[in-house]
């Protein structure tokens, strides 16, 4: 009898320990980045592009990479919505409910979602070679859009699945077509969830490095055209870390802090938006 309870207590202790360990790993990472990055934070970091000799420790900042990442992830997110929203709407409004085709699509997107970003980068690279394109903002946008498309489709899909079918019927009963119902009722009902999905995809786009190494290139100036190379925050961090000068490495930590804060803001915004936009939502 006693052994049963000893075992119970032992494992419960282990479980709590594991949970605490996992959470403290998150805290440790955030703290490290904060403590290491903060001393090197300055206004210049977020308002200036790299000046001459920046990588030798001279003045400047990483505005090029901040803006570059925002442009790139923004463009990719737009592109992914443009393709992803219709796909999710098709699977939930247009196709017959329970169609096998839809199940196959869901499966395909789930599998695609597991493909690592470096493979998307390599694939994006082959596309660019095919079209004789150079590394550019556009190339990066395409690679990131492909990367975030499956997760965007599936998360919007999950949101749309929760829209009560009666709501669609109410609209059909008024003589609305599926297209009208999809645009005016389904999207509106699911808007908070859709926006959350979009923001999460945007965050993933900003944070990703492996898919843009080949496709977006790098530059010290703010991108002026879709066909020019563009700097991204993750790569800026990576390159600065590679320079064996303490000042430059310190800026890498500061850049990592900037990236982390950006990501945290986006995920916070996703949560808040989801709560705010529920004004019209029926339930």
């Amino acid at each position: 009898m006693d052994r049963r309870f000893a075992e119970e207590r032992l494992f419960k202790g282990l479980m709590i320990l594991a949970t605490v360990l996992i959470i403290s790993s998150l805290v440790l990472i955030l703290l490290t980045v904060l403590l290491k990055g903060l001393p090197y934070m300055s206004l210049d970091m977020v308002t200036k592009t790299p000046q001459g000799g920046y990588y030798l420790g001279k003045g400047g900042g990483i505005l090029n990479a901040i803006l570059g990442s925002l442009y790139l992830a923004g463009g990719a997110t737009l592109l992914a919505i443009l393709f992803g929203l219709p796909v999710a709407l098709y699977m939930n409004v247009f196709s017959r409910p329970g169609a096998r085709f839809v199940g196959a699509c869901r499966f395909s997107f789930d599998v695609l979602n597991g493909v690592p970003s470096i493979v998307f980068g390599a694939f994006g690279f082959t596309i660019m070679i095919f079209f004789a394109m150079r590394a550019s903002l556009l190339g990066g946008i395409i690679a990131i859009a492909l990367l975030i498309l499956p997760m965007m489709v599936r998360s919007i899909d999950e949101v749309l699945r929760l829209v009560p079918h009666e709501l669609l019927e109410a609209s059909y009963a008024l003589g609305a077509t599926r297209w009208e119902t999809a645009l005016k009722v389904v999207v509106r009902q699911a808007l908070p969830g859709i926006l959350t999905a979009v923001l999460i995809a945007f965050g993933r786009g900003i944070g990703d490095a492996a898919a843009v190494i080949f496709t977006a290139g790098f530059t010290d100036s703010i991108p002026g055209s879709l066909l020019r190379p563009v700097a991204t925050l993750p790569l800026a961090i990576f390159f600065q870390l590679g320079v064996p000068i303490p000042e430059v490495q310190g800026r890498a930590y500061a850049s990592a802090l900037i990236l982390t804060i950006l990501i945290l803001i986006i995920s916070l915004a996703a949560r808040l938006l989801a709560r705010r936009l529920t004004r019209h939502v029926v339930k």
């Binding site: 959470i23 790993s25 998150l26 440790l28 980045v33 990703d208 993750p234 961090i237 995920s267």
Partner: peptide, 24 residues
């Protein structure tokens, strides 16, 4: 409480994990 924290962990960019790995 724990679930959102794990979501945050999932959202941290891999470069930041790399920086942390190098530092710690």
């Amino acid at each position: 409480w724990v679930k959102p924290l794990i979501d945050i962990l999932a959202g941290i960019p891999s470069v930041v994990f790399g920086v942390w790995g190098m530092l710690v």
